[in-house]
């Protein structure tokens, strides 16, 4: 097989792979945006004093973190139609990814906020700030700095997770590979190309992460307590 590895077929299918790559990027960006929104809300709820607000958030986060993404995907894919929601696979996929990553992002943000020393909160309280003011002016700006690297890490995870959407027939990168593999009986050419594309995305995101760390590092003045 490796002796007649067909580069020509790969080139022939390049448009398909290109579309798949773009589709993967798009749905990753959409899902990540959704995940950020969900994560911020869930984290906010989880940090409240009121048990009424904390409970649903905690249940959501724990349920998502202790179950596989694939099971969550199938849950939505097979379950939503029963509730009357007939949605295109793409929407179901983005929803599943957002809900999944949202839980992890909520935990990342929470860790970031908790890493801010108590003294900062006390200084805010002493100046007479309300909870919202403290958050906005003191805690969140500092937490932001801490959370960017793990958030980018979660973005990388999300891009890889998006491959599972191929199993519910969403047109993305892995699905392009599956099509080549089944059309032409060329799994090697198909999946090696797919892997290479994901590696491109991976190194791209890692470069972004490194760049952001440098940018953040230069802008912050580390206070020597």
């Amino acid at each position: 097989m490796l002796t007649n590895f067909s580069f020509r077929t790969i080139v022939e299918y390049l448009p398909l792979f290109g579309q798949g790559l773009v589709a993967t990027l798009w749905l990753s960006v959409l899902s990540f945006a959704g995940a950020l929104a969900i994560g911020i809300i869930a984290c906010g709820m989880n940090l409240q004093r009121s048990r009424l607000l904390r409970a649903p958030a905690k249940v959501y986060i724990d349920a998502v973190r202790a179950t596989p993404l694939l099971a969550q995907l199938y849950f939505l894919y097979f379950g939503l139609p029963r509730l009357g929601f007939i949605l295109p696979e793409l929407v179901v996929g983005v929803l599943a990814l957002s809900l999944n990553s949202g839980a992890y992002i909520a935990e990342i943000i929470r860790a970031g906020i908790l890493s801010i020393p108590r003294g900062q909160v006390e200084a805010g309280v002493a100046s007479g700030m309300t909870f919202v003011q403290r958050m906005r002016l003191v805690i969140l700006p500092q937490a932001f700095r801490v959370t960017i690297p793990p958030l980018l890490g979660q973005a990388i995870v999300l891009v890889k997770d998006s491959a599972l959407l191929s199993l519910i027939s969403v047109a993305e990168l892995t699905r392009a590979g599956q099509l080549l593999a089944s059309d032409r009986f060329m799994p090697a050419e198909a999946f090696i190309t797919v892997a290479a594309c994901y590696l491109l995305l991976y190194y791209g995101l890692k470069g972004l992460a490194r760049g952001s760390e440098r940018w953040l590092g230069s802008r912050t003045v580390r206070s020597r307590a």
Partner: peptide
């Protein structure tokens, strides 16, 4: 770390 596990499984199973 740079490729989805699904793709790795396909690579192993089919190749």
């Amino acid at each position: 770390r740079g490729t989805p596990f699904l793709v790795q499984i396909f690579l192993i199973f089919f190749i």
